[in-house]
């Protein structure tokens, strides 16, 4: 597993460096400027950007024979899939830390940047769920539809993930009504998060099944 994770890290490293520089600049700007919209955008981009970047680089394994070569090494196919899921979670965590840092800095400098402090939880829940749903849709599609369609599948996965999160949020709002209590807001955020987490876990099993039938 260590070798697979190192492999995934090398694949994402160069693009992550570029993205980090961009995000640091954006984060610094957002921290100084008081704009709720800009802060929201920066946080969601931070949470999703690093992890989406990580799954986007999966295709790099297949531009050479490395994807096939890995199957001849002493690793199980399930471990290869697991390594991609773990890598996404690691980069998602990096995005959360980054966004948390930007939000905290803004909060320290200018006070609560949202209408209610509980909204911060909603931003994280929404961002994390979009990332998890996107990964859950992308991984099986990647193996099912062919590595060369990597880019198209990534866009489709991201759009579907946003759609699903919006759909669940609308359903929650419909059930709880327009004037939600703090606990209802927390429950709503948890519902979205748990749905994405379950889908992510189910997607792992599905991706393993698909990948076990894949020939190179």
């Amino acid at each position: 597993m260590k070798g697979l994770l190192t492999n995934n890290f090398y694949a994402v490293r160069s693009s992550a460096k570029v993205f980090s520089v961009f995000m640091l600049a954006l984060g610094a700007f957002v921290t100084v400027v008081v704009s709720q919209q800009l802060l929201l955008f920066c946080m969601l981009l931070g949470i999703n950007g690093f992890s989406i970047n990580a799954i986007a680089t999966m295709g790099k394994d297949y531009t050479s024979k490395w994807g096939k070569y890995k199957l001849t090494s002493p690793v199980k196919r399930a471990d290869i899939v697991k390594s991609y899921f773990i890598s996404q979670l690691i980069w998602l965590l990096a995005g959360i830390v980054f966004s948390g840092f930007v939000m905290s800095a803004s909060w320290l400098l200018h006070g609560c940047p949202f209408d209610r402090s509980i909204d911060a939880l909603l931003v994280f829940s929404t961002g994390i769920s979009i990332s998890l749903f996107a990964g859950a849709i992308f991984f099986p599609l990647f193996y099912l539809g062919g590595e060369e369609r990597n880019g198209a599948f990534l866009v489709i996965s991201l759009l579907f993930a946003i759609g699903i999160v919006m759909g669940i949020t609308t359903a929650v709002n419909f059930v709880f009504g327009s004037h939600m209590t703090t606990w209802q807001i927390i429950s709503g955020a948890m519902i979205v998060f748990v749905c994405s987490l379950l889908t992510f876990a189910l997607s792992y099993s599905l991706t393993v099944i698909v990948f076990k039938k894949k020939e190179y």
Binding site: G3, L5, Y10, A11, K60, T63, K65, S73, P74
Partner: peptide, 27 residues
């Protein structure tokens, strides 16, 4: 088992040093 395929066996963005790090984690 050691395997050598024709052409590019490893990602082009790696160095031999990085290849060694990955292999160390696999074998």
């Amino acid at each position: 088992i050691g395997v050598v395929y024709d052409g590019d066996n490893f990602p082009a963005h790696w160095t031999a040093e990085q290849l060694s790090h990955v292999m160390q984690g696999l074998y």
